[in-house]
Amino acid sequence: MITAVRKPMEEIRGMIAPFKKILIVGCGTCVAECASGGEKEVGLLASALRIDAKNRKREIEIKEMTIDRQCVYEFIDQLTGIIENYEAVLSLGCGAGVQALAEIFPVAKIFPALNTTFIGQTKEPGLWIENCRACGDCKLGDFAAICPVTRCSKSLFNGPCGGSKDGNCEVDPELPCAWNLIITRLEEKGELGRLEKIYEPVDWSKMGKGPRKIMREDQSI
């Protein structure tokens, strides 16, 4: 899932300062899962902005809407006929969602209310961790399904570095050292031998030459 966090209120306020009629659009998918852009968060942000405007003696009209997915046309289309009535749109989608909205409604003034952060996993309630960098060349099969590109601070393929302490990463001692995890898990599986091989430099070109795309002939109309 794509994770995101709300931008500081100051920044959001700055973006919408010139406008009075604002549509806040949430997204019911990834950012709802990570509690940053779902229906509830839309409500919270709307509430906060209304109170804020009132305190500053500003008039503001806010409409709240949350669509299932902000990156899929069929869902975005639900905004047709509504979005036009607003001076500005605050999107609580990820970067992909914001751009998709803007593409479909090129005239609308669309602002991001979130900072899109990473692709990750809900580790436990209230904790999300990054675990995929979308490098386009997945090697998880070799590393006991722990991604060294993402989860090792230095993206080592022939780790660990010398900085691991108590099983944690020197860069963020709160996080486990990915290589420690890889070695432990491979050892449990009796597959530590996999690491004897020296991994050649990664072909980062798969991570893209410019923006990436996926083309599936079988899926296209």
Partner: peptide
């Protein structure tokens, strides 16, 4: 680094 975690892998890593 002979002193970093995981200790039991340090020699293997040197070998590598």
């Amino acid at each position: 680094n002979p002193f970093a975690d995981p200790l039991n892998y340090r020699a293997a890593r040197l070998a590598k």
